[in-house]
């Protein structure tokens, strides 16, 4: 079972705090530059059709993130 809650598991409307990013360097840098860094609060606004990307909000920025990439983001339980 998954002990760690990940961004990809968050239901639409749900809010949580980012704990860590288990991503490769390039993705990590991009996520952090867009504001998705440990300690920040993130909210999932909607999930795309046909396993499409997540529409999320972090700080004053709204982003689309693929589910595969959102699986790298660990959230506080």
């Amino acid at each position: 079972m998954h002990a760690v809650r990940r961004l990809v598991d968050l239901r639409p409307g749900g809010t949580a705090t980012v704990v860590s990013l288990a991503a490769e360097r390039g993705l990590r840098a991009r996520l952090e530059a867009l504001g998705l860094r440990p300690g920040q609060t993130v909210q999932v606004l909607r999930r795309g059709w046909w396993s499409g990307p997540l529409h999320i909000r972090v700080g004053m920025t709204e982003l689309m993130v693929r589910r595969r990439d959102a699986a790298c983001v660990a959230l506080a339980a």
Partner: peptide, 9 residues
């Protein structure tokens, strides 16, 4: 390649 894009207002 991962994809993270901004959705501006």
């Amino acid at each position: 390649e991962p994809l993270v894009l901004e959705l501006p207002p």
